Amino acid sequence: MRKVISFILILMIGISVVGCSSKKEKEEVSITDLKVMPKFELKDVNDKEVNNEIFKDSKITMVNIWATG
């Protein structure tokens, strides 16, 4: 469970960094346009490479993002 939570947090940070880029023109993508999981490469808390291949055998992927204050 701890690895899953760590992966989601790392994924959120990665998405935040990409979303905060200085690129002025952004291509808008609708949720209905997404047919496959976007490509990403990160390292987990154990310094193991993690990429979008972990979802290759899944028909549906749900990412649950939550936080406490």
Rank of each mutant, 00 (worst) to 15 (best):
M1E: 10
M1F: 08
R2M: 10
R2Q: 11
R2N: 11
K3E: 14
V4C: 12
I5N: 10
F7P: 07
I8D: 05
I8P: 03
L11C: 09
L11S: 08
M12L: 13
I15E: 07
I15F: 14
I15V: 15
S16N: 12
S16W: 11
S16F: 11
V17M: 11
V17I: 15
V17D: 13
G19Y: 13
K23V: 02
K23A: 03
K24L: 02
E25Q: 09
E25A: 10
E25H: 06
K26A: 05
E27N: 09
E27W: 03
E28N: 09
E28M: 07
S30H: 13
I31V: 09
T32Q: 14
D33W: 04
D33V: 05
V36M: 01
M37T: 00
K39L: 01
F40Y: 01
F40W: 00
F40I: 00
F40Q: 01
E41C: 00
L42T: 00
L42E: 00
N46H: 11
D47Q: 09
K48L: 03
E49T: 03
N51R: 04
N51S: 07
N51E: 03
E53W: 00
I54L: 03
F55Y: 05
K56V: 06
D57E: 15
D57T: 14
K59H: 12
K59M: 08
I60M: 11
T61G: 05
M62W: 09
V63H: 12
N64Y: 09
N64I: 14
N64F: 12
I65S: 07
A67I: 05
A67P: 02
T68I: 05
T68A: 04
T68D: 10
G69F: 12
G69V: 12
